[in-house]
Each structure stands twice: as structure tokens, then as C-alpha cells.
């Protein structure tokens, strides 16, 4: 398993149980989505894989090593882009390589390649404040990839974008992903986004956060949105999300 999550429980200081004995194995090269309503702990789980959030009990392993702090092997794309505003688009992408002391010419060369990959070659010297939301997120994706992480973690990356830009970026992300099939963990609350992008959709529930069901998406990658199976699976997941288990309040 690329990512192995065993019996993870997270209790915050205020006593809120964010995750209750969650276990999940993620195979190398799969695109997996964590889907669920707010408060189901999907972001907490992702942040735990990234090493930003500590666990109360249980174990998270990436590439067989237990996660206890953030690291460059787990690239992250944030909903709020998190680009460094004082660096140009190109310099943002080269940031990880700069930390590794890759010579300047080489890292700019590499950064250009990734900027090109997300279709922004014409905007290399622009600062983030000069870019649209969709462009910013493209730069953020390129930045994460340029650092050659072992897994790519995405925390509602398209949540702040308008519907049209969102679909465009989903298409572009898949196109890039299919080139090297990196392991991706993608957090979203959009059912169609999860079904469109993923090999597997992990549906989570809240109070406390737990895994309700895992759906294997056995649909063709090309033209997936138009297939009957896409609509059917989307409906199934929606139906399941609606029947909230009755828990005594």
C-alpha cells in the first residue's frame, strides 16, 4: 500500500471527535477522493497524511514510513492556492527545487516545463495578484508537481472556482495525472467531481467522522461525464448521502 491508514482517531482539545477509528489503504497510482459533508473529518484526514495535524491514536504510513511531520514527499494543493505573493508564477513553481539547492538555470528550466504543462507559459513573470483564481490554482498544481512528490494531496482545490473554470481544471488535472499516474488523495464535497476524477470514492459521514462506504468507479476515463454509469453512480452516492443515519442528538 502506498498510503496505509490504521485505526486513526482524532480528538481535538475541545473534546470534539473529528475521526473515529478510520482505516483505509490507498494503492500506488490510484486517484482517490475523500467525499462527505462538512465536519466529516475528510480535511482532517488529509492534513494528517500531510503531517499538519497530529493524531490521537492509530497510525498513518506513506511508503511504509510513519508520518509524524510535513515533508516534501507529500505535495499539497490548497483551496486558497497558498502561492507566495512575492514570487512570480515561475519562481513559485521553482520554490521546492530552490529548497533542494538545484542550480538556478536547471530549476528555472524545470519550472518552465511545469508552467508549460498547465498552459501558462505566457504568464511566467506575473505575480499571483495578477492572476485569476483558475490560473493561480494551475500554478499551485504545477508547483506541487515540480517538487516531484511521492503522493499528491489536494484539499478542495477547485472549491473556490466558478463552475466553468472548475470543470476545465478537472479536465486538465486528469490529463496531467494520466501522464504519470501519481497517487492522488483529493478532498471534495462535490459528488460529480469525485466520480469524474477518481478510481475510488471514499464516502465519509460525520458525528463523529468515519468512512461510510467506498465506491469503485469502474468507468472509462474518456468521456466519463457522458456515460450512463457516471449519472447512475452519482445518483447512488447522492441517495446514500441523503439518508443520514439517525443518531440521537
Amino acid at each position: 500500500m502506498k498510503i496505509q491508514i490504521d485505526n486513526i482517531t482524532k480528538v481535538y482539545d475541545n473534546g470534539m471527535v473529528a475521526l473515529d477509528r478510520v482505516s483505509l489503504g490507498i494503492e500506488e497510482g490510484t486517484f482517490i477522493s475523500l467525499l462527505g459533508p462538512s465536519g466529516c473529518g475528510k480535511s482532517t484526514l488529509l492534513n494528517m497524511i500531510a503531517g499538519f495535524v497530529s493524531k490521537t491514536s492509530g497510525q498513518v504510513c506513506v511508503d511504509g514510513r510513519e508520518v509524524d511531520c510535513p515533508g516534501g514527499d507529500r505535495g499539497m494543493v490548497f483551496q486558497e492556492y497558498a502561492l507566495f505573493p512575492w514570487l512570480s508564477a515561475l519562481e513559485n513553481i521553482a520554490f521546492g527545487l530552490m529548497l533542494k539547492h538545484v542550480p538556478k538555470a536547471e530549476r528555472l528550466e524545470k519550472a518552465k516545463h511545469y508552467l508549460d504543462l498547465v498552459g501558462l507559459s505566457a504568464h511566467a513573470s506575473k505575480f499571483p495578484s495578477e492572476l485569476s483564481g483558475g490560473m493561480k490554482q494551475r500554478v499551485a498544481i504545477a508547483r506541487a508537481l515540480a517538487n516531484a512528490p511521492s503522493v499528491l494531496l489536494m484539499d478542495e482545490p477547485f472549491g473556490a472556482l466558478d463552475a466553468h473554470t472548475r470543470e476545465t481544471l478537472q479536465d486538465e488535472l486528469l490529463e496531467i495525472w494520466e501522464k504519470d499516474r501519481k497517487t492522488v488523495v483529493f478532498v471534495t464535497h462535490s459528488v460529480s467531481e469525485a466520480v469524474f476524477l477518481s478510481d475510488r470514492v471514499v464516502l465519509m459521514g460525520n458525528n463523529p467522522g468515519h468512512i461510510r462506504e467506498i465506491f469503485d468507479v469502474n468507468l472509462p476515463r474518456t468521456g466519463r461525464r457522458e456515460t450512463d454509469g457516471f449519472v447512475a453512480l452519482e445518483r447512488r452516492i447522492h441517495a446514500m448521502m441523503r439518508q443520514v443515519p439517525k443518531v440521537a442528538a
Partner: peptide, 25 residues
Amino acid sequence: GVLIRAAQSMGASRSDIFRHVELPA
């Protein structure tokens, strides 16, 4: 804080974060 987390997820050490994130920010 998200800028610091972004740098950490690219392998930044504490001194990297100070030099390349905190000071410019």
C-alpha cells in the same frame, strides 16, 4: 499559516521557512 504549510509540504526546514516565507511575508 497556509503559506508556511505550503512551504513545509515542499520540504522546507525551519530556517528555510524563516528565510523564504516569514521574512518576505
